[in-house]
Design a protein around this nucleic acid. Structure first.
Length: 143
DNA sequence: GCCAACGTTGGC
DNA sequence: GCCAACGTTGGC
């Protein structure tokens, strides 16, 4: 049984365009220095799906990625506490789903994007997953 | 650019 | 183990 997640990235540091350009090779989700975010990555399984959210600029869910490599050391630090997963792009959101739209939807009131604003790697429930996919115009959401 | 929220650090 | 100080995140 697969779980669902959300990754935040500031587009001027690592954008959806850059993620897509990496193709099936995927990319290490490095640089996470927060225990809760790391713990979420530890819980991820190969093939888990996640939203790709642009923070700071854009403020919208722009695409879907999947876990292409489970938890391993973060190559950007020697500190053994910090680990990460690899992700690869799966598809675009036909209609990016803005933070505003998420906040305006009562069915998404408990989404971590709303309640835990600063957490950069978040869990998403299946109900939230389906609702956001529907809002984004994905008739056949990856599960 | 501001500032609120909140996680982390470090002195005691 | 508490908590004040500090740093960072991220919406606005």
């Amino acid at each position: 049984m697969s779980n669902y997640w959300l990754f935040k990235s500031e587009p001027f540091k690592w954008s959806w365009e850059q993620q897509k350009a990496r193709g099936d090779a995927g990319e290490e989700w490095d640089g996470i220095r927060n225990y809760q975010a790391r713990n979420n990555m530890r819980a991820m399984k190969l093939g888990d799906k996640a939203f790709f959210y642009h923070s700071n600029e854009g403020l919208e869910i722009v695409g879907i990625v999947e876990v292409s490599k489970e938890i391993h050391p973060d190559s950007t630090t020697d500190d053994p506490r910090w680990e990460c997963v690899d992700v690869r792009a799966v598809c675009d959101m036909p209609e990016p789903v803005s933070l505003k739209a998420v906040k305006a939807n009562p069915r998404l009131a408990d989404m971590a994007l709303v309640t835990s604003m600063r957490l950069s790697v978040q869990p998403v429930t299946k109900e939230e997953w389906l609702e956001v996919c529907r809002m984004g115009g994905l008739d056949d959401p990856p599960l």
